[in-house]
């Protein structure tokens, strides 16, 4: 069965830097509609800083890579998404310390710890129109299909669910984050954090397939 090596994880982080740079205006546009027009810039800035650390990742375990990424995101992203994604990677690091590759079960443990960190930091629940609307069903879908140990199959399912879940934030009225200030006017728009989260899962699938 396929595993994700340290270098695959580094490729994933580098791919994310490219994706968030490409989608910067798109994500910021989503945030302009219901937030403050900075989400794309925040994500691009943060992941560019992570990708710039790639030389330090050479020969290192995944725990180190995740922890360094977490600290980098915390100190460069700002906004709500900085502490959220930062906490996600920090807790994922705790589950991958000393590991130089991740099995389907290892990745599941990382995701589970990461999502728990998002809940602890942001205190949002499913349906609040935040990135949790993606992460909670993604975690469930991943766990359900990773049971038989196939990492690519589990990520394929997770990525499908992520896309549907992100789109499902459109009709919702936001209860957390900046969009909640708009009340009813937040309905009819895709949540930027849900979309950036979905892109993150999709990129991991792209790497796992290689």
């Amino acid at each position: 069965m396929k595993e994700l090596s340290s270098s695959a994880i580094v490729s994933w982080l580098q791919l994310l830097a490219r994706i968030y740079e490409e989608k910067k205006d798109y994500l910021t546009g989503l945030d302009a509609a219901i937030g403050d027009a900075d989400h794309g810039a925040n994500m691009a800035r943060g992941f560019a800083a992570v990708a710039a650390k790639a030389p330090q990742f050479e020969g290192k375990d995944i725990g180190f890579i995740f922890k360094t990424s977490a600290m980098t995101l915390l100190s460069t992203v700002g906004g709500a998404s900085g502490p959220l994604y930062g906490s996600f990677f920090l807790q994922a690091a705790g589950k991958s310390n000393g590991k130089t590759s991740l099995t389907a079960a290892d990745l599941g443990a990382c995701l589970e710890a990461g999502v728990a960190a998002l809940t602890a930091r942001g205190k949002a629940v499913f349906g609040d129109k935040t990135m949790m609307d993606v992460w909670l069903p993604v975690l469930d879908a991943y766990k359900a299909s990773a049971a038989d140990g196939d990492l690519v199959a589990a990520l394929t399912k997770a990525s499908e669910v992520a896309k549907t879940a992100a789109a499902a934030t459109i009709p919702l009225v936001a209860k957390k984050g900046r969009a909640s200030y708009l009340g009813e006017r937040s309905a009819g728009h895709l949540d930027p954090g849900a979309e950036s989260s979905s892109l993150l899962i999709e990129a991991l699938l792209t790497i796992a397939r290689q």
């Binding site: 403050d36 700002g78 906004g79």
Partner: peptide
Amino acid sequence: GAVFTSPTP
């Protein structure tokens, strides 16, 4: 912070 973005810890 950056324009309209919270500073970092």
